[in-house]
């Protein structure tokens, strides 16, 4: 399990670094694929089998394909990393990093008290399904997400189409 953790954590961090610092946006997108897959592997090492599978399906398979399509359809201007901008932003990033580190130290002190070693991971899919459909579980968020996904489907098509209709009208 430790080896798997090192493998997937390394994959996630490497992918994140490639995404943050590579010059080409296509390379950055594939770095994001690596990072998201590494995170899915971390879910698996944490015993979250269903969540890891969903991560691969939805992120690695879905969001990234959308992203690559957007790259193909829209990138004309330079995606280069502006060094001057980076120097400007570096202190801000450093401060955010320090803040995260401080939060880590604070939480770490609390966490030491947990002391419990988690048991063997169990299959979670059945429990997740039951929780999502039980009224004293997560039924309300489940239905809200369903409505939201319908709205997103309609909204995304509307937003992406509206300009084409206007163009067709002005052209005719």
């Amino acid at each position: 399990m430790d080896f798997m953790f090192v493998l997937f954590a390394g994959l996630a961090l490497l992918g994140g670094l490639v995404m943050a610092f590579h010059q080409s946006i296509v390379h950055s997108a594939f770095g994001l694929v690596g990072a998201l897959f590494g995170v899915a592997g971390l879910y698996w090492t944490l015993g979250a089998d269903f969540l890891g599978g969903l991560q691969v399906l939805l992120y690695v398979g879905g969001v990234t394909v959308l992203l690559l399509f957007a790259v193909m359809l829209s990138t004309r201007d330079s995606t280069r990393l502006a060094i001057s901008r980076y120097v400007l932003v570096a202190p801000v990033v450093g401060i955010v990093g320090l803040f995260v580190y401080q939060a880590y130290l604070g939480v770490h002190a609390v966490v030491q008290g947990f002391g419990a070693t988690p048991g063997e991971p169990q299959p979670t899919t059945e429990e997740i399904g039951a929780l999502f459909l039980s009224p004293d579980g997560y039924l309300v968020p489940f239905e809200l997400v369903a409505i939201l996904l319908l709205l997103v489907l309609i909204g995304a098509v509307t937003v992406a189409r509206r300009g084409q209709d206007a163009d067709a009208e002005t052209a005719s």
């Binding site: 961090l13 943050a20 995170v39 980076y86 932003v89 801000v92 955010v96 995260v100």
Partner: peptide, 15 residues
């Protein structure tokens, strides 16, 4: 790991 990924994300957004 989570903290490093978070900082990388913030750096990407800002730069």
């Amino acid at each position: 790991v989570s903290g490093v990924l978070f900082v990388l994300g913030v750096a990407t957004i800002l730069t």
